[in-house]
Write a protein that binds this DNA or RNA. Sequence first.
DNA 1: CGAATTTGACCCGCGC
DNA 2: GCGCGGGTCAAATTCG
Length: 300
Amino acid sequence: MDDADKPDPGGTGINSDSSWTIGADVDRVNYFFPSDGESSILSEFGWNLQSENTERLGELQRIEADESSDLAGTVTELPQTNSSRDFWSSDMALLPGSYVGEVSASNPSVSSSSSEDPPEKSAGSGGKAAEISTQMKKKGQKRVRQPRFAFMTKSDVDHLEDGYRWRKYGQKAVKNSPFPRSYYRCTNSKCTVKKRVERSSEDPTIVITTYEGQHCHHTVGFPRGGIISHEAAFAAGHLTLPMSQFYYPGVQLPGENPPSNTQLHQQQLGQARDRTSSVRVPNSDDGLLGDIVPRGMRKR
DNA sequence: CGAATTTGACCCGCGC
DNA sequence: GCGCGGGTCAAATTCG
């Protein structure tokens, strides 16, 4: 268990969790949708996404700066009227198709901390949240999330292969959803990247994957020797992902139309909708990777 | 036997 | 201040 938590220096087990960095109390959010060359953002995060029976439906990114200047694009200021903060309203905004603000995935604190040498934080080891919080409060600092990136895929499998090894460290039931949310952490001891996987309550065939942090290492390699899939290439920033492959969550998800979702991102969505209206939701299953990614690549 | 998963408990942040 | 939901830990269990 401690294999991924070696770098805990203090031995006190107290550290800022991998998903947090000590910094200013700014929680800025920018949205990004890789349309052309912007897809390199994925490579910046070190993601090589591929899986079987998977079809990429939507993608978004939330960049949370921590100590940059005060720029626009803040979403946390928006009123969260609904207590039932669902995935998208509170934690992440789904605004693919719109590029709002600056993409700063490699902002200083994040990139430096997670990609090279985590100064005092380790992979969420030891310290309990309480202790972590206490220490942080002592320092008068808040926890700042690392940049996140989420996307939706239509897939039979929950855990999509992305070239990295993940270890599950938790699972929680999701409110208003019959499907649990799984929490994974990169098995690389130096890597603090986490990811959450859950299925859409509206459409069980849709898997919502959220990555947090940046990999500080390369992929573990693929079983059949460096298979570069369509998505992998995309992730590497060498390929433009076809817009038609994307699914626009905040806009498309059917259902009761929760006020939180709708109101929360109304402003942004208004902009997004304009651009997404022309995007169709693919219905064809058997994702583009079905014949590329061998089954053996799946986790056991 | 080591690594990965499961699962209940704990803690924090936020809304009321 | 309280309760709820989300996120994480860590011991126990399972798997290769």
